[in-house]
Simulated scan of single mutants.
Amino acid sequence: MPNFPVRNNPCEKIKVQRTDTEFNNKITDLEGKTNLKKETGYIQKWGGDYVYKDNAGSTNNANTLSLPSVETNTYIKGFIHTHVNNYKFLDDQGYETDKNGIKMFSPADIAYFMDLVKNAKETGQPLNDVYGIMVSNLGNYQIRFTGNEYQIKTFTDAQKEAHRKPFEDFMTRNGIKMQQI
């Protein structure tokens, strides 16, 4: 890991964040929701407030959580969301089928995170305070931006779509059945 000053050290920022009771309450709440059949989560505003989000789409093939548009909601500092546990469902022919929850950040999660970083730059907020967290039954994972303003990468819809197929291929190679993400 690069030698960052403590105030910019992502590990130190995470340690400080983990001492916040409200933050820990949100994580605990979401850890208790990984058995749901849809994703849920929170956004955190730059002022510190958290807002619960459960406007998720869920099909037998995919789970999505709609978070506020970054472009028009410049108050978002970070997000915490679940990726659901594996479960069984009856398919269209009445056969029991496995639905496997993805236990890593999706391309859509990364694109949203990078949009938050871009937004932080444009609104004068510290880039390294932006975060994304994925909560699952296999563990909780956090991403932080450690680059500079010239390393911010955002994605067009076409670029986001281009990441979809390699992601699906990776998941399939690793034994996760997927029809659509």
Rank of each mutant, 00 (worst) to 15 (best):
S69P: 02
I110Q: 06
G32A: 13
F145H: 00
S69E: 13
W46N: 03
F4C: 05
A108D: 09
E122N: 15
W46S: 02
G48M: 01
E96G: 05
Q142K: 12
I133C: 02
A162H: 12
A158Y: 15
E161F: 12
Y50G: 04
K33T: 08
F105I: 00
K160F: 04
H81K: 12
M171I: 02
K121T: 04
R18Y: 14
Y75V: 08
Y131P: 01
R144E: 01
V135A: 07
K33W: 08
F23A: 04
A62G: 04
Q125G: 00
N8C: 10
N85P: 00
F170G: 06
Y131I: 03
I27S: 01
H83G: 11
K13P: 04
G57A: 15
S58E: 01
T172G: 00
T59Y: 05
T146K: 10
L36A: 09
R144N: 04
N35S: 14
M104W: 05
E12K: 07
N8R: 12
P5N: 10
P68D: 15
T154Y: 09
D29N: 11
D49K: 11
N174M: 00
F167R: 02
D92R: 14
G147K: 06
F79V: 11
Q151H: 13
P68V: 15
I133F: 02
R18D: 11
K165G: 04
L30I: 07
N174I: 02
I176G: 03
D20M: 08
K15M: 08
D109V: 06
V84C: 12
K177P: 11
E122M: 14
Q179S: 08
N137Q: 07
G48L: 01
T21Q: 14
G47N: 13
K99M: 00
T154C: 02
H81V: 07
E168N: 03
T123L: 08
S69V: 01
T64N: 10
A120R: 10
R18C: 12
K118V: 00
Q44G: 02
G32C: 14
T40D: 05
E12F: 02
E22G: 00
P2D: 14
P107G: 04
G78M: 00
K38V: 05
K99P: 01
G175T: 06
A162R: 11
F167L: 02
G139C: 06
